[in-house]
Design a protein around this nucleic acid. Sequence first.
DNA 1: TTATATTATTTCAAGCTTGAAGTTTCATAA
DNA 2: TTATGAAACTTCAAGCTTGAAATAATATAA
Lengths: 156, 156
Amino acid sequence: MVAGPLPAPSGPGKDRLRLWVRLLRASRSIEAELRERLRQEFNTTLPRFDVMAALYRAPEGMLMSDLSRFLLVSNGNVTGIVDRLVSEGLVTRARRNGDRRTSMVRLTEEGSKAFAVIAAAHESWIGELLGNVSEDEARRLTGMLNSFRSNWEGRE
Amino acid sequence: MVAGPLPAPSGPGKDRLRLWVRLLRASRSIEAELRERLRQEFNTTLPRFDVMAALYRAPEGMLMSDLSRFLLVSNGNVTGIVDRLVSEGLVTRARRNGDRRTSMVRLTEEGSKAFAVIAAAHESWIGELLGNVSEDEARRLTGMLNSFRSNWEGRE
DNA sequence: TTATATTATTTCAAGCTTGAAGTTTCATAA
DNA sequence: TTATGAAACTTCAAGCTTGAAATAATATAA
């Protein structure tokens, strides 16, 4: 992954390989920049932001397994991140009566306020980092990414 | 990050935000699939594959700092991965006479052979996973990704 | 020469991530 | 009822990742 300049191989499938390399480099670069800013300006991390973003869109709460499915990460991973958010007072885990195996995870009042602030900064960062993709181009790119996603995603 | 379906917000900058979300979801999905296959079929990991891929393109070897710059990861990170590759006999670290702070990292004969096999599988997996992006579309997407990359990348 | 700064790398603690194994709770079927 | 199995989580070990601090070697300046 993240292969780069110089050789420029050719042959069948090489264009897809090159696309993948670019895709990966782009998302890694942007991710690194976002992580750095989240740390510097809000003393938080990308995984915590991800979890909070998911919860922000679900005021009624989400199950641990919902979170893990939605964020494309493992169950055990979510456990750890939610643990930390709980200890920071940003999130609650509420045992449910119906099914005592599960627990509803929700943003606290504080967590919700904190997220709103961070999310606003986050959106403007994205606007900046993707600055020379026009909104129109952005829509087209998004469409293309959608099309290939639907191909194989969701089969595992 | 990795926000998803449902709400579909609008407003200035939302298209770029949506693009970023898709980009991230796409690369995470593909990365997860590749990681799984590397583990199952070759008992290796993505970071090790990345390092080997970089070294494969540089028969004369690379410095630790070259690797870290090229792969977009921290110095300390590369140290650990190379340590493991060395202990597996796939890579060597050669102290240099000119500057004894640095060491040249190279694939061993074994590492080079192993990588060639894995890389072939990897390329065909990418062909499969990006199957319904036409080669033509792949080229166009790559171009777009390039253009916005050059905007801000390399300033830190 | 002798400080002083810079460069290349490693070490370290903390957090993220996974896959596998273990718990607890619920659902289903004899 | 009582197995038996499935589902939702958590725990765990191993590896990845970062940023900061520590080491060591080289380069520069006084």
